[in-house]
């Protein structure tokens, strides 16, 4: 669009800047708060520029924890089995970060794996009720998690999966959106390619691994970003099914600290936690974005 109206340029820039300030200001305030000590944060006015306590706050959160009723204790994460078992001792906050990471990665990888296989079956195989299954999956798009949260809880509880990673991850893995996206992508793959693979002697699974999967790279990257953030930001579900601190996620931890009743919240530490909780999704976006764009550029030529 080529237009040369100065006032329009000014106006559109103003809109962009105002939008940016509205969105970025709370993030900036979170960062600023994470660099002061508690006294500064309780005095009025609240500072708008970073203070000198950034390193102290982050070190405390990652090693000591938040302090107070919840999160002062040390946690030990045990990895591996038998002689290969290692134990890591860390603060509650670090522990919740790891829990969140396990949950988000589990959901993301699980969702992508299950939906790509489902889409593969629906697009490339003929079996009875094929379209019926597709619509059955598709219709779950219409129901948000919250609507079916009570029966889901019932199922998970009776399977004994409360307070476990599998309980956190598995109920959130099924994804109509991802299945639908992969289906659309597979349907755009030319039939000739499938036929060429058949003539080359590739069986269905070989075709899937050698051709379809590498070709889906960009779709996978896009879904990874979306689903990781979805998994990381889960709040209601982990809140429902975890009762042990050792399974809390970082989003839950931040919210719990903000709601303390018996003492003044340490805003500086709370905001430090919030900053840490924001970091992984941001990193995922930044890192995957590059993969994603590279993929797009490569196929574009």
């Amino acid at each position: 669009m080529v237009e040369n109206r100065p006032w329009l340029t000014v106006l559109s820039h103003a809109v962009v800047l105002i939008g940016l300030v509205i969105i970025a200001f709370p993030v900036w305030m979170t960062f600023v708060a994470s660099t002061h000590d508690q006294q500064t944060m309780l005095r009025s006015p609240i500072p708008l520029l970073p203070g000198p306590h950034m390193v102290d706050n982050y070190v405390q959160i990652l090693t000591e924890g938040y302090g107070g009723r919840f999160g002062s204790s040390k946690h030990t994460l045990e990895l591996g089995w038998g002689p290969a078992k290692i134990s890591i001792t860390m603060s509650t906050i670090a522990m919740t970060m790891i829990n969140s990471m396990i949950m988000a990665l589990g959901i993301t990888i699980g969702k992508i794996a299950i939906s790509i296989i489902a889409a593969f079956a629906i697009v490339y195989f003929r079996f009875p009720f094929r379209m019926w299954f597709f619509w059955a999956i598709f219709i779950t798009l219409m129901l948000p998690v919250e609507v079916r949260i009570v029966p889901t809880y019932g199922v998970v509880a009776s399977l004994g999966m409360l307070d476990s990673y599998s309980g956190l991850i598995i109920p959130l893995i099924a994804s109509a959106t991802a299945t639908f996206l992969f289906r659309q992508f597979f349907m755009s793959v030319p039939d000739e390619l499938t036929e060429a693979a058949r003539v080359d002697g590739a069986g269905p699974m070989r075709f899937f691994w050698d051709i379809l999967l590498p070709m889906s790279r960009t779709t996978i990257a896009a879904l990874f970003v979306i689903q990781f953030i979805y998994g990381w930001n889960q709040y209601l579900w982990p809140l429902l099914i975890t009762t042990k601190e050792s399974f809390y996620t970082v989003v839950m931890a931040v919210s719990r600290q903000a709601n303390v009743v018996d003492s003044v919240p340490s805003w500086n530490l709370l905001m430090t936690m919030a900053m840490l909780a924001m970091l992984p999704p941001v990193l995922v976006v930044v890192f995957m974005q590059r993969q994603f764009v590279r993929g797009l550029v490569e196929t574009e030529k």
């Binding site: 030319p190 000739e192 036929e195 060429a196 693979a197 058949r198 003539v199 002697g201 050698d210 790279r217």
Partner: peptide, 20 residues
Amino acid sequence: LEPKDRDIAMVFQNYALYPH
């Protein structure tokens, strides 16, 4: 017989090369 067992090779209209 499956295509691979027929001892044939095929050249397609749109080439059908594996893009990756």
